[in-house]
Amino acid sequence: MFGKKKLAAAAVTTNPAPAEGTAWIPADGLEPIHVEESAEAEIAPNQTLWEQFWSIFKHNKVALISLIVIILYIVVCVGAPLFAPYDPLAQDLSQGLAKPSPEHLLGCDKLGRDVLSRMIYGGRISLMIGLFPTLVSMTLGTILGITAGFVGGKVDMIIMRLADICMAFPSLLLAMVVSYTIGPGFLTIFLALSFVNWAGTARVVRSEVLSLREKEYVEAATSIGVKRWKIMLRHILPNCLPTLIVMLTNNIPGNILTESSLSFLGIGAQPPMTSWGLMVYQTKSYLDRNPTITLAPGIAILILVVAFNFLGDAVRDKLDPRLQEQ
C-alpha cells in the first residue's frame, strides 16, 4: 500500500551451524530422531462462523465504522418514538424556520415542525424502502436467475426476455406510471422498485450459474449421483453468495436513493408522512435562509449509502474463501 513505511528486511530464524570445529555438537547430537511436523504448522487454523464474521471487522476499521453506522441508523429509526424529542407532526408556527438551537438541534421547518424528529421518523420510510423491495426483488431474481441458468433452453429464453422487458423501463418512469394508476404512496414505490430490480439480479445470477455449473466440483457431484436440485442448492447457490451480497449492498442504497428521487418528484411518501427525500424536496426553497433543514436529510442519505458500500466490499472479500489465501 502506498504511504506505508517500507518494511525492514526480516531476519529468518535459522540457527546456522558453526563452520569450525565440533565442540558445539551436543553429546547425543548424532542420535537418529523422528521429527514430525506440528499439526498447526501444516494448515491454517479453522474459524467458527462467528470468528469469521468478526474477523471482517478486526483489521478493517472502515468496515467496522460502517457497520456501527448502519446499526445506529436502524436502532434509531426503529425506536423512533424513544429517540425523537418531538412529535414529528406537531406544528409550532412560532418556531417556523427556526435555526438550530438547544431545543431544536437541527432547527424547524416552515410549519415549525422539529427537523430532527421528522428525520428520525422519515428514516423509517427510507430504510424500509431500502430493505424490503430489495429483499423481495433479489429473492425473486435469484430464484429466476438460477432456474434460467441451470435449466437452460426455453425456460432460460423466456425468463431472460422477461428480464429484458423489465430492464427496458427506467424505474423512475415506471414508478410514475404506477403512481398514476394506483395513486402515489408507499405501495407504489414498493411495487415499482421490486418490479425493476429483480431483472438485474436474475441476469447476474444466471451468468454466475452458467460459469459455476461448468466447475469440476459440479461434475464431481454429478458423478456421485447427487440430484440436480441438490447440486443447485448445495454447490451452486452458495458460490453465488459473494456476488449476491455485493448486489445487496449496492441495491439497498440504490433503492434509498430512488425513493428520495421519487419523493422529491412528489410521488413517494405523501405528506404529512415524510422521508428523507421528501424532506429535501419540501425544504429546498429555504436553502438560502436555513440550509440545515435541507442539508441534514441529504447528508443522512449520503452517510448511509457510503456505509453500505464499504460494508459490502468488506463482506465480499471475506466471504470468498479463495481470496483469503493470499
Binding site: T14, P18, G29, V35
Partner: peptide, 26 residues
C-alpha cells in the same frame, strides 16, 4: 512462514539426527 529451527528438511527426513533440529547445516 513456519520453518523448523534447524535444518528445514528435518521434519520430512528419515535420517534426521538431534543436531538437525538444533542447527542448520552449511
Amino acid at each position: 512462514l513456519s520453518l523448523p529451527k534447524g535444518c528445514r528438511f528435518c521434519t520430512r527426513c528419515d535420517k534426521a539426527m538431534k543436531i538437525c533440529t538444533e542447527y542448520e547445516p552449511d
